[in-house]
Nucleic acid binder design. Structure first.
Lengths: 258, 258
DNA sequence: ACTTGTCGAGAGAGCCATTCTCACCTAGCG
DNA sequence: CGCTAGGTGAGAATGGCTCTCTCGACAAGT
């Protein structure tokens, strides 16, 4: 089983680890006639040869980056159009004017591709949330903003999606699937958000705004409640009765003894 | 799109509506030469012909019931063995010594089959929970028992499953999938449980054991928290840190202002 | 020109769900 | 008793997808 994405780095760490180096490094070795000690090679000062190599390596890298990015963009596009993650690889390949072979060069499977989209999305969400939090100073307010934003992020009300961002519902949905089959990857992707939440909980607890016995579990519960409450709404038919961010927050707040 | 299962009745209502009657009723009509008013026919006293017909109808029905049951049992068996719902229809058919054609005679699709298993499971859970609740009289205690039982039911700790019941994790998991694609069916299946919970919440609120502004939403939140918290545990690696029923309950309790 | 690595094109392979065909078997009927 | 039609088992055929593999063209280095 191959793995292209490093756990915490995410998408753009892809090619460095695999394809490019595979080829590039081999090139270096061949070009420099392979001196004695391999580790020593890293320490040598960059002569023209090295520079040339690194230049072509960079070129190769950005070529690859661009290719991967095209796959990702196209996939986002298809999801946006279809409102579901049920596109086929063939579609992605055709539309991005690349080859099936190329696709599997960069992604192990379709899941891997969607996982990448998921990571991207979570990253965006994280940035957005962090920004929103920065505007608040009160620990409880920060916690509240986090909760509300995350909730909205999972399931943006009506879909005329805001400029610049993508449809997120299909991704969130697929994340359920991923959570079942690639729990570790999903966990890793959510890591930064979990840690942020934990911080907020700790701070709020320290400030006496909430009373929690076990911060870790409290964090987990809040995260869960928020992450899944949008999904639960799927089982509610009457839109009037769907739970919104505010209600979810209040429930959490009480749950936290606030 | 055909539908074999009535919303609230569940599995055993299947054949009455479709196949059997399709054949049997046609038989009746032909046999009795189709008198005048169709509705009137239902009111006629059972002469020998009617009795004979109903006997064969019953025979056909139980034959069908037995066949369907065999599919269901086999599917449960496969799930138990594999620990996943990833069996193929072919397997079910082969092992139950029936035919593919027969399968699609009774079930529209694989989802339909698993939905049936899900309904069965929920029904069992409901019975179990109701029984457990009956042993308690205090409103809050009843609510607590409900919560804990439901939590355990979704994700029975370690799998050496108790006699008589089936592996439930794979079913719960598949339910996530179903919730995405057949929300209405899942909602219907969960209906009785939701109503029960609502009752408990109302009673507890009336008794002043908890303070809720909007019972409906409170109910939804509790249901969600419980139903998904086991799923959230999937993202927790260290078993020590997984949330258990007790913790979930306490969170809900506070959330409910208890 | 010759080798070697890269990559697009696209033909499968394999796996499934779902549908279709056909032949058998049995009950009812003349 | 032979005949016919509906119900049903067996399992072949279809279609959709993911993923693999082969081929050939192109590019860069030698």
């Amino acid at each position: 089983m191959r793995t292209y994405f490093t756990r915490d780095e995410g998408i753009l760490a892809v090619y460095d680890e695999r394809h490019i180096p595979d080829g590039a490094v081999r090139g270096v070795k061949a070009g420099s006639q392979m001196a004695a000690g391999e580790p020593a090679a890293e320490m040598r000062e960059p002569d023209w040869r090295e520079r040339a190599v690194s230049r072509s390596l960079n070129a190769a890298r950005s070529r690859a980056e661009e290719r991967v990015q095209r796959f990702l963009d196209t996939a986002f596009e298809l999801i946006d159009e279809k409102g579901t993650t049920e596109f086929t690889i063939q579609e992605v390949v055709d539309r991005s004017k690349q080859s099936l072979r190329g696709f599997y060069e960069y992604f192990d499977s379709k899941d891997e591709l969607v996982l990448a989209l998921f990571e991207e999305t979570v990253r965006e969400a994280g940035d957005d949330i962090r920004e929103a939090i920065a505007a608040e100073s009160d620990p409880l307010a920060r916690l509240r903003v986090f909760t509300m934003r995350l909730h909205e992020w999972c399931d943006p009300g009506e879909e005329p999606r805001m400029r610049g961002t993508h449809r997120r519902r299909p991704i969130s949905e697929f994340a359920m699937h991923l959570a079942a089959n690639h729990a570790d990857r999903v966990r890793a992707a959510l890591g930064p958000l979990s840690r942020l939440l934990r911080e907020l909980v700790d701070t709020a607890a320290a400030a006496g705004a909430i009373r929690v016995a076990n911060p870790r579990r409290a964090t987990a519960l809040v995260q869960q409640t928020v992450l899944y409450s949008w999904f639960g709404n799927r089982l509610v038919e009457n839109p009037e009765r769907k739970l919104d961010a505010e209600e979810t927050w209040e429930f959490c707040l009480h749950g936290l003894g606030g």
